[in-house]
Structure formats: structure tokens, C-alpha cells
Design a protein around this nucleic acid. Structure first.
Lengths: 237, 237
DNA sequence: AAAAAGATTAATGAAAGGTTAATAGGTTAA
DNA sequence: TTAACCTATTAACCTTTCATTAATCTTTTT
């Protein structure tokens, strides 16, 4: 079904375990890059992007702990977990102290590993990936077609600009829920500063204008937090 | 100190383990509610707000798995983990399939438990205050949605300001318990002086006004100490 | 009854938000 | 190459919100 796959970097020096694991994870619909040498990790991370990093600790040319420290500095948003034979309590605690999202002890059951990875990735919903709009959306008495950037009501069409479109898409896919300044700005502008926030106000103002023919629709401000597109329940079922 | 703490509901029937765990977690700065009976879980979750739920599976009056299913439906945003003596693979997989964020086997090292909880909450709640894990709370006949800052009763919606919202969240998270001036002021205002205390009174007054339609709800003053949000038990069992 | 603490309502002012207009940067068309 | 056009950003200006402060009244304590 051509879903986007989650990308995982697996750092493991052991040939046979590395092979088994990467094959197993591939079968389970992950996109795996198997890194056999600790010294290659940073290079791989620089050239490709990943959703998760799985680290062995005992590597012939370096320590997984050291790698984790470097990763944390250069790629602070990349979640990583340890998968290792070192099971002493001190190591476990060190792993978590370094910021690991999990610490798994070998031998690990493959099915459990997959279950844990899913549990992890489910929590980290990458905002970039859920901004897809296939078909038209209903907003009160308006029809919103984000594909074509058109907002329509009783024959009146408004062509939206890119920003207006992105903002309305964001708000309408979180109908009646608070959308924080931060989420909107990071989601659409990619960063959050004073001027973007000013800009956001301008576009909210535009959308309010377009939407003001339906009394049941309001873009409400929640001071210091963000906006809510509130849509009254319409009487038809 | 006097930071706002993460709130955890611990569901554990074993007296001694429950005691040890809740004390240990309290020492580590978590705000723990220990639920001894599986049948009480949903009730507690409905009236108090939590950041995490820890579930035993083998309970005398119900199964942790069943509880998880109900929680998933009614409080889909609340992360939960299993902490159990059942270590069979089938149980582990079932736990994750139900949406658990972790599955821990007894006996668990307390330090590791704390490390894992921190790893989890750091992911769920990146930098600021956690409102993501919040769901709507029941306060008497009112519904309080701290996420969207609204208080509702029989169709009447009141949009709360930031301070009102923070205060009501604090009080309702410590229902029927004394909330000292000091804790509230340090928790919400970040400092405690004469003028903040005056301000606090103003907001208490606002909340009383909003809540005065339900006779069973009162914000009581305890002279020189603080306030209690007291909610009468409703007549149904 | 005096003093202290709390409750309530109202006044104030700074900051946040709203709106419209001007600017600048980029793209298209001629 | 230039002119026309579109759009995001910035600016300017106005309006609203809400935490604080103040003022006044009520309750509790001694």
C-alpha cells in the first residue's frame, strides 16, 4: 500500500545477529540501514535521516555510550535505544541517563523488539508526516479543498494562498482543539519567533474574513497559547 | 522545590509492594495515587488527572488487560505501562498490542523503574508543561477540559483564562486535599509573596463563581494554610 | 471590639491580539 | 529586460484581554 516506512539505523558489529535483526525488521516493514562499524555512525546519520537509532554498546572500534553522546549533541531529536548484552544495573542506568528511550538486553525476542519499536514510534508522531489531505473537508457550511487551495460556500469560491491554505488545513484537522502557536509555527513556518507569530496573526485575520459568512464558525484566540477553530455542531445528522 | 510534579496512578493490589513502590516514587518527586482495586481505576481517572498509569495485570477483582482496554477508549491520550510478574512472551506482546508504552517484569529494580518513567515522560512532554496527557476531568457535575481551558456544565461553556485554568487544574488534581498557599503560589506563580497571595484570592473568587451551580462543590478556605476543593461524593456507587 | 485574614468587586495598565496598509521578494508575461 | 502581478512579511495603529493592584466589605479569631 506504499506507506511511508519508518527508517531505522541499526548499529551492530556482530555479523549474524545484525543480519538476522535487519532482515526481521525489514519483514516488519521498517526501512533498515545496518551500520557495522561504530566509526561510521555519524557519517551515516549525516547523510540519511532516521526515525530511530538502535545501538549496541560493545563494539570493536568504539563504545555505544560514546556514540550516544555524540548523537545527542549533533542530532538531539533522534531517539535512540540500546540493545546490548551488558545487563548490569549500572549500564542500564547509564543508558537512560544518556537519554535512551529504551534499554533492551540480549538475547531479545524479535517479536518483542518489534512491539517495543512500534510503541516508541507511535508516541513520536512526526508532524511532517501527518499533513496530508486527500479530499475535500467540510467546515460548517464551507467546503475546503486543500489540494486545490479552494474554499467554497454556496457557489462562492475563494482561492487561498499557500500560507492560508496550510493554516486552514492545520486548524481544520484539529477542529475544536487548541492549536498552540508553537505547533502551528513549527508545523507550517518551520520555526517559531516573534515575527512569525505576527505573520500568523495576519493569516488568522484573513481566514476569519473568508469564514465569516457562517455564524457557527469562529477562530478563537486563547491568550498566550494559540487558536481554536470552533465549529458549532450542525443540526443535520 | 515546590515544582509541579508528574502525577502517576499506580494500580497494585499487593499491599507491601504497593507501599514500597509508591513511597519510592514519592521520594523521587512523583505525585502518586495508589489504587488498590481494579474496580476503582476508572473512577479515579475520571476525577483526577494523571501523566502516567502503571498497571499490574493480576488483580483479584479484574484483569489489568481489561482495564487497559477501557482506559484506551475513555482516555486515549493517557500513557500506561504494565508492571507485572507475568513474563510470558504472549503476555508481553498482548500488553504492547493494547498500546502500552512499556512492559516491565517484576521484580523490577526501583532505580531502573524511575529511569524508565523519566525516559517516557521526557518523550511525552518535551520541554514545557504537560497538558498533552490531560483529558477532560469530572468535577461534580462539571466537565473540565484543561487542554482547551474550558469548563462546562449542561451546555454552558466557560472559557477560562490561563491563571484560572492553572489554578483549577491544581485544585482538581488534589481534590479534597489541602493545597497550601505556598504550594499553589510556587507551583503556578513561581514565587510566593504578599501580592501573589492577594492575586490568588481573586482567582479563587472567580472559580467559585463559575462553580457555584453545583451545590456539592466548594472551594473552602483553611485559614492561614490554603484551600481545598471539596467535592461531595455523588450518590451512585 | 479590635485586628487580622479572607472575599468580592472594580479600576488600571501593560501586553497580546486584530486589522489594514506598505514593502519587498519572487515569478510570470510580454 | 522590464513591467505587472502575486504573496509573505513587516510595519503601523487600534482594540481587547486579563493579571495585578486597590478599595471596600465580611468573617473569624482573640
Amino acid at each position: 500500500m506504499a506507506e511511508i516506512k519508518y527508517r531505522i539505523a541499526l548499529v551492530e558489529d556482530d555479523e549474524s545477529l545484525g543480519y538476522v535483526l535487519s532482515e526481521y525488521l525489514k519483514i516488519n516493514d521498517f526501512d533498515i540501514t545496518w551500520v557495522k562499524k561504530g566509526s561510521k555512525v555519524m557519517e551515516v546519520l549525516t547523510t540519511e535521516s532516521f526515525d530511530l537509532l538502535i545501538l549496541d554498546i560493545t563494539l570493536p572500534d568504539s563504545s555505544g555510550f560514546d556514540i550516544a553522546e555524540m548523537v545527542k549533541v549533533k542530532f538531539p531529536k533522534l531517539p535512540f535505544l540500546f540493545l546490548t548484552a551488558r545487563s548490569m544495573k549500572i549500564d542500564v542506568l547509564k543508558g537512560f541517563a544518556l537519554g535512551a528511550v529504551d534499554y533492551l538486553k540480549k538475547p531479545i525476542d524479535e517479536e518483542e523488539l518489534v512491539a517495543r519499536i512500534h510503541a516508541l514510534l507511535n508516541r513520536v508522531v512526526p508532524p511532517a508526516r501527518n499533513l496530508n489531505a486527500e479530499h475535500s473537508l467540510q467546515i460548517g457550511s464551507y467546503t475546503f479543498d486543500p489540494q486545490n487551495q479552494v474554499l467554497e460556500r454556496s457557489g462562492n469560491r475563494t482561492r487561498l494562498t499557500e500560507r492560508e491554505n496550510a493554516l486552514l488545513l492545520y486548524l481544520s484537522s484539529h477542529k475544536n482543539q487548541l492549536c498552540t502557536h508553537n505547533d502551528i509555527l513549527n508545523g507550517i513556518w518551520g520555526k517559531n519567533d516573534y515575527f512569525n507569530k505576527k505573520s500568523l496573526n495576519v493569516f488568522v485575520s484573513h481566514l476569519r474574513k473568508y469564514l465569516n459568512e457562517d455564524q457557527g464558525i469562529r477562530i478563537e484566540n486563547i491568550r498566550n497559547r494559540g487558536f481554536v477553530l470552533s465549529v458549532a455542531e450542525n443540526p443535520n445528522s
